[in-house]
Every structure is written in C-alpha cells, then in structure tokens.
Design a protein around this nucleic acid. Sequence first.
DNA 1: CCTTAAATGCTAACCGTTAGTGTTACGGTC
DNA 2: GACCGTAACACTAACGGTTAGCATTTAAGG
Lengths: 212, 212
Amino acid sequence: MTLPTGRRERKKAATRQKIADTALRLFLERGYDAVGIRDVAAEADVAVTTVFSHFASKEALVFEQDQDFEQRLTQAVTRRARHEPLIPALRREIEALVRHCTADSAAPIWHMVDASPALREYEESMRLRHAESLAMAIAADPDLPQTTTVCRTIARFVIDAHSLAREAADPETALDEIFRMIEAAWAATRPSTDAHSCSGTASRGRVGDSPE
Amino acid sequence: MTLPTGRRERKKAATRQKIADTALRLFLERGYDAVGIRDVAAEADVAVTTVFSHFASKEALVFEQDQDFEQRLTQAVTRRARHEPLIPALRREIEALVRHCTADSAAPIWHMVDASPALREYEESMRLRHAESLAMAIAADPDLPQTTTVCRTIARFVIDAHSLAREAADPETALDEIFRMIEAAWAATRPSTDAHSCSGTASRGRVGDSPE
DNA sequence: CCTTAAATGCTAACCGTTAGTGTTACGGTC
DNA sequence: GACCGTAACACTAACGGTTAGCATTTAAGG
C-alpha cells in the first residue's frame, strides 16, 4: 500500500498543476488562439510531450477540472437522501455549479470559451460525456425503474439546463423556468405513481403548483 | 440578377459534389481516419485548397447536407398550419429525419460517425447550431409568446430527441417516450391555457431559497 | 475584345498531436 | 545500501488538418 503522499505523485501533481496554471495564465494574457502548445511547454519549462501526457488536448488545459463536475453530478443522484425525489436533488447540484461558473472570478475564462469555437466544441463533447454518466447513475438507482431512453433523456435535459442557465442573462430565473419543464417531463414518465394518472397520449400534463 | 443556372455556378456545384462524393466513397472504403485530405483532393482531381474552399473542415465533408436538416427543422415551425400546435409539428419532422438517418442506406455512414470521435464532436457542434436556429424560429412565432429561455430549452429538447432516438434500439418507441416528456415540458410553460390538471405528486416549484 | 472577378491551382508553412527513443529518478525489494 | 523495474519526462522528427500568398484559368458582362 503506497501512501498517497509519495514523492513521485507529488511531483507529478505539481507538474500537472504548473502546466495548467501556466496555460491558463498565458491564454488569458494573450488569447487562446495566440498561444501555442510550444509556448505553454516552454513557459512551464517542460517538454511538449509532457503536456500531452497530462492533458489529452489543448482544450483540456482549460477544462482542467471537468472530472469534478462529472462526479458531483453523479453523486447528486447516488448519494441523495433516501427516497428524496430525483429532480430537486439534481436541481440543487446544477444550481451550485451554475453559480460556480457565473462567479466573477470565472468570468474571464468563460468569456474566452465563448470566443473560441474550438473550446465551445470541446465543451459540447464534455457535456455529452457528463450526460451519459448521469444517465448511468439514474439508471442504476433501484428506486427509479425507468427505461434507458428516459434516463438518457432526463440526463440530457439536466445537462442542457446547466448550459442554458450559464448563458442566460438571469441564471436564477432561467433555472426556475427550465426545471419547471424538467419536473413536468419527469412526471410524465410515471403515470401510475398516484392514482391521478392522466395517461393516454398525455398531451398536457398537470401544471405544477405555480409559486407565483 | 444572374439566372441561377450560370455555367460558373453549375461547374462550382459539380466540383463540390464531386469532392463530397469522392470523400464519402473513400471514407467508407478505407475508413475515415485512414483517408487524408490530400488523398481526397488527389482522387477528386482538385487542389487541397479547393477542398477547403467548398468545405470548412474534413468533418464537414461527411455532414454535407446539414443545412437541409436545419432548414427543415425551422420550416417545420414557420410553415406549419395556422394554429397547429408546435410540438406535434416538430415531432413529425423529427420522426421523418430519424427515419432518414436509420435507413439501411445511411447505416454505414452513421457507423463511421459513431466510430470516430472527431466526427461525433463535429456532430455535437452541429446540433448546437441547429438548436439555436430552432430556438430563433420558435421565438419568432407570434402565437408562442415565450421567454427566450423557454424557446432555447424546448429547442434543445427537440434536438436531443433526434440524437437519442437515432441511437436507440427502437427509434419509434424512443420517440414516443421522449416526446411525451417534451409535451409535458411544453405544457408546463403555459399554466393558464386550459388546465385539465391531473396533478400527481405535487412537485415543488419553489426551490432556490437555500442553496446548501 | 477586354476587363473584372470568381474559381482553382501550387507552394510552403503553421500548429496540434503522436511515435520513437532515450534518460532520469523514484519506489519497492533483496 | 545495492538493485531493478518503471513511471515521468525530454528530445527529435514527423504526420495531418488547415491556411496564407500568389499565380493561373475561365466565365460574365460591357
């Protein structure tokens, strides 16, 4: 059992962090497109191949902590309180993540992302991965006997919520609107929970008690 | 105004088509990654720069007709019958497009797409563009006085429906499930029209006070 | 016919990314 | 402590998508 504080691992983590910090600094200073991988490597005093041994691509340098994101989402499902409804738990997590993205300190980064097509594209593929992970987590919950399609659909909707709320002028209000829709979509998948159940072609489901 | 059948435009269109056909043939014969742009250019008997004057990227060679896709979606909104409900109109169009994608003749292409991360990523960015166009079309409809967020959300959901149904084992059933959810989400945005209101487990609309 | 501009060709390069090949330094073992 | 396996890193060179710069053809219109 190697202790988690081996010198090797510390050095590796330090190198990775130095690369990420240097890259982000240069990107913000000169612009993402104006900084090459060779620049980052030189400034961080490592070889180009070392950069790519820590990060799969240039874009990955910007989204350094996306694994945290993914894990927080799945844990919002797996570690929620017993019998706690799914959607509110997800909403809490998305709300926290949106707040994190829209914080003032993160603003320059997202401005850079929005300005670069390559970064936007990369973010898109990340979102797809996150949606798949989330769908797996939902499908694995024994309290939620849903089809694969429903799990994947709800997962996509939730990820969409994050993306749309982040870009909205008023993220809080946007989350309200979007999650009202997601609640309704989720409710439409379980026509038999309580006896009310207006099933059939389910044109219009019930409208949730509007808080206004 | 020059007539749309000038010799120049015909030749240009022919060149474009020859490049696209050659590229798709080579991709299917040897695999997407095994064929370089220089191969495509040589086989189509054009210069590399000519390829890029017709197509923005290598991936765009595969999704040659995505503009048709986008146009069909927006027209499903703008050209639908007077007072026809939005969602069923969109569902019809998505259903047709999914059928088109899952046809036997298109199977090898989508197999290639699913096998290539670059193509998948490109398809993702396409979907985002399509969703934005669709959101614009929905927002422009005077019969649908919705907020920007609601329009963008519904647009994303519909695009998600296409993506998920295309990948599902049974696309027809998947579309049924997903559009039942989308109908409910859409209905939840208009609480005042006419409420049949079969309310089940009352979802809480008011979250957002305590983030922790 | 002659001018103009669009379409295409050719060359060379840029940049992200990877393969191949060593070299170093840490970790576990004797 | 000496030893060995291996993870981390360096270096070079190259590949492949993409673009700039400039030359050349060819259709369009006066």
